Simulated scan of single mutants.
Amino acid sequence: MQRLSDTARLGMSMRFRVSVDGINLGSWATCAGLSVEFKNQRVNEGGNYEYTVILPDRVEYRAITLRRAMSPQESAIVQRWLTGVVSGWYKVNSPRDYGPRTAEIELFDAGGSVVASWTLRNVYPSKWSGPDLDATGSQVAVESLELVHEGFL
C-alpha cells in the first residue's frame, strides 16, 4: 500500500468556514474565485527602442462563489444575514452608507488547525441561489452565495 505525503493527505481533507462581521455563515463545500489580478499598462516611451515600459494600473478581485448542500441551521443563518443586508440597504441613502463589511475565509486541515485565512474588505452579497426543486429526482438541495469585495491584500 502506498503512503500519501503529509501535504497530499492534508489537501484531501481541507475544510473551510466563512464569516461576515463575526457572523459564522458555516462550512461550505466549494469556494471559487479567490484570486487577484494585477492589471498594467504598456507604454511606448519615445526614444526607447529596446522595451515597452510597464506601468501598474489597478488590482482586480473576482467575486467569491460559495456552494454547499442546504442544512436547516446554516442555511437559516445565511437567510437571516441576507435579510439584515436588505434591511440595511433600504434604511440608508446609498450602499456606501451601509458601512464596510469584512468577511473571513478560514481554511482548516483535517485536525482543525487553521492552514490559511483571507480577510475580504467591503464585502457585499451579489447573488444567492437556492436549489432547483424536483420532487421526482434524488439530487441534493444545493445553495450558492456570491460575494463581491474590494480585496484581501
Rank of each mutant, 00 (worst) to 15 (best):
L120D: 02
G33Y: 05
L133P: 00
W118K: 06
D132G: 10
N40G: 08
S5M: 04
Q79A: 11
T102W: 03
E146L: 01
N24P: 00
G88S: 13
S87M: 05
S94C: 09
Y98Q: 13
P72F: 15
Q41V: 07
A76E: 15
L153Y: 05
D97E: 14
L4I: 07
E60N: 07
W118H: 07
V115C: 03
R67I: 06
A116V: 05
G99D: 06
L120C: 03
D6W: 07
N48M: 10
Q41C: 04
Y51N: 15
G112P: 10
T7E: 15
G137Y: 11
R62I: 02
W81C: 10
Y124N: 04
A76N: 13
M70N: 04
D132N: 13
T7C: 07
L145G: 02
V148F: 03
V78M: 14
H149Y: 08
R121C: 12
W81I: 07
R9Q: 12
L147C: 08
E50F: 09
T119V: 12
F108T: 05
V53P: 01
V78T: 00
I64M: 10
R121L: 12
S117A: 09
P95H: 15
N93P: 01
E74Q: 13
M12I: 02
A141E: 11
P125N: 07
A110N: 05
D57T: 01
A103R: 01
A141K: 02
E104R: 13
P56R: 15
E50H: 07
M1P: 00
N93E: 14
I77N: 07
W128A: 03
L147E: 05
E74D: 14
T65M: 08
E150G: 05
S117F: 09
K39M: 11
P95F: 15
R80E: 15
W128N: 04
L25T: 01
I64E: 03
V20K: 04
Y61E: 13
R96Q: 13
I23L: 10
P100E: 09
G111N: 14
V20R: 05
N24Q: 10
L145E: 01
Q73R: 13
Q41D: 15
S117G: 03
L147S: 02
S5I: 01
W128F: 13
A76P: 11
N122K: 07
L153F: 09
V86P: 01
W89I: 09
W89N: 08
Y61F: 15
S138K: 12
P100N: 08
G46K: 04
T102K: 06
T52G: 02
A116P: 00
W89C: 09
V148P: 01
L66F: 12
V43A: 13
